[in-house]
Design a binder for these strands. Sequence first.
DNA 1: AAACTAACGGACTTAAATAGTCGTATTATA
DNA 2: TATAATACGACTATTTAAGTCCGTTAGTTT
Lengths: 132, 132
Amino acid sequence: MLKLSKKVEYGLIAIRHMASIESITTAKEISEHYKLPFDLLAKVMQKLSKNKIIASHQGIHGGYKLAKSADSISIMDIIQTIEGHIPGIVQCIDEGLEKCSIHQNCTIRNPLHKIQENLESVFNNLKVSELV
Amino acid sequence: MLKLSKKVEYGLIAIRHMASIESITTAKEISEHYKLPFDLLAKVMQKLSKNKIIASHQGIHGGYKLAKSADSISIMDIIQTIEGHIPGIVQCIDEGLEKCSIHQNCTIRNPLHKIQENLESVFNNLKVSELV
DNA sequence: AAACTAACGGACTTAAATAGTCGTATTATA
DNA sequence: TATAATACGACTATTTAAGTCCGTTAGTTT
């Protein structure tokens, strides 16, 4: 619980790697350098590419590089891209109050919502350029 | 990912409930009031009891109540009690650097550690008395 | 034009974590 | 002594995450 997924972890590593070099790089290169499972990493990078966080180039000397500056990419951008949405720390925040079995009687939603906001602001404010 | 477990959620609800009433209450009462699975809730309350966060009384008119004041119980206390340890957002923070496949080449551990600390301080500083 | 190598993408399998259940023992009280 | 509560271990089911496999598409180079 309260863990980042491996996909997000791999995404962060890949982005961090691309931020540290100028030239184009490939999924294979990164997977070998950091010993990450190629297929999974490749998919993560494809998602990052679809969301224009990194730019892809197909073909024999293709690969990826950052599509924008490292200080304009937040950790939140990466999480959101890979997970599809900003995860909520509890279901009623994640999927809405309706799906909550407790509903009216729930006494913890408001305070948890504040924790959620705090967490989100941390991820929003931390940029790839600060990943050092 | 980045979710609190149901056990922690149920624990928070139970603690919050006990903080709002003076008298002794039971796992059955809470499970019915909030429609939570009895067995699971009961186990959570047993853990809270073993860690002296709540006090238990067996026997026919037994039950639980807070063992200390609501402003001296942090959310972190509850999470730690129920989960056994403070969870880390990534494995190398949770279980130590040795178990990390990336090791030397890891470039994201330090920044993630800062996020971790931030998260922990939020949970540390939020007390049960503020669960409103 | 053919061969090569990289990204692209869907379907699938495996593994791990979480959630929930069941059975039984213990303990205090009316 | 019957009852109603906690205590606790073992088990099952469910869900989520992680990883794999297969084929396709697209630029490059020879």
